[in-house]
Amino acid sequence: MSMLQIETDPAGMDPTAVPVAPERGMVGRSPGRLAWERLRRNRTAMVSGWIMLFLVVLGVSAPLVELLYGIGPYEQFQDRIANNSLPLGYLGGISGDHWFGLEPKLGRDIFIRLVYGLRTSLLIATSAAVITTAIGIVLGIVAGYLGGWIDAVISWVIDFALALPFLIFALAVMPTVTARFYGPRDEIDVPFRIAVMILLFAMFGWTGTARLVRGQVISLREREFVEAARASGAGLGHILFRQLLPNLWAPILVTFSLAVPGYITGEAALSFLGIGIVEPTPDFGVMISNSLDYMDGDPMYLIIPGFVIFLLVLTFNLFGDGLRDALDPKSSR
């Protein structure tokens, strides 16, 4: 609807209506558009997002990188390893052929193993985040909406899961589950180890999302649109997943983006302790664990994988913080 500006002649007679175009600021914008504009103004989040995207694409396209790089993650270059098991050359054997140098003793290329290590960590962390987020959403929305004894039982399970020490539980469960399916001399398949790690994360990681969703649902279940859905005869599933869930995507997305880096460091910690991914599969935790024996002679073997996992986790966290600020309507950014 156009605005009208009233103009008069110098004598003050015969007013005429002159149409004036509406200001651009009055054009309606969706909440998603507003959130995207706030996110674009956050330079820290945008830079972190691009770095994060680059690392994710690098890990996902690991076979293509191997093809272009010309070196595989299990290929050894023993001719470039000295008698003291250290790589020949400076900074751990960094050269035009080996961008990040070589591993001591075995002589495997560090760069290509880091690329495959990215894929391993992202596979475990993303899968665990998807599963834990889904479990947390379902249990949280059911507990928050139904209340009563269902809410009490789910809240008790959440408190019980939070009381269990994750690391001690993982140290006990991983060998037990492995012994259930494999003999003492059998070689454990990598997919089995990955599945057990994802299961461990799923058993403990859903509690934060469930608590967040439960609190949001409690504040939404008495709103007018929920009452209207009840009055129209909508079923429980329709109210939970068609009415309430669309209003929870903002905190859920933020929780998911902040959960992934937590699982990346958790996976690296378990592999560092020897109960996660093991040799010869490329992994950050395995590389950092192996590098401890060569800290004096080849510190780059520790610095490079440590910096990569630090950068990966940092960019995920910074982007998650920026996403939270962008999705918050009360944000001052």
Rank of each mutant, 00 (worst) to 15 (best):
I6N: 10
P10V: 12
A17T: 14
V18Q: 13
V18T: 15
P19K: 08
R24D: 14
G25T: 12
G25R: 14
G32F: 07
R33E: 15
L34F: 08
A35H: 01
R43A: 15
S48K: 04
G49N: 02
F54A: 15
L58Q: 03
V60F: 09
P63G: 01
V65S: 02
G70D: 06
I71T: 08
Q76N: 11
D79K: 13
R80E: 13
S85H: 12
G89I: 04
G89Q: 06
G96Y: 10
G101D: 04
L102H: 02
L106Q: 09
D109L: 08
I112M: 09
Y116I: 02
Y116R: 03
T120E: 11
S121R: 02
S121E: 05
L122I: 10
I124H: 03
T126V: 15
S127A: 15
V138Y: 06
L139C: 11
V142P: 01
W149D: 05
I150C: 11
A152Q: 15
S155N: 10
W156F: 14
F166P: 00
M174N: 06
P175I: 09
P175N: 10
P175M: 09
E187F: 11
I188M: 09
R193Y: 04
A195P: 03
F201E: 03
A202T: 11
M203F: 15
W206M: 01
W206Q: 01
W206L: 00
T207E: 02
R211G: 10
R223P: 03
E224H: 11
A228K: 10
A229V: 10
A229F: 08
G237D: 05
H238I: 04
I239E: 06
F241R: 06
L244V: 04
A250Q: 05
P251C: 05
P251T: 03
T255M: 13
P261D: 01
G262L: 03
A268C: 06
F272V: 04
E279L: 11
E279R: 12
E279N: 11
D283C: 09
N290Y: 07
M295N: 00
D296E: 13
M300E: 05
G306I: 10
L311P: 00
F319P: 00
G320W: 00
D321C: 10
D328E: 12
S331I: 07
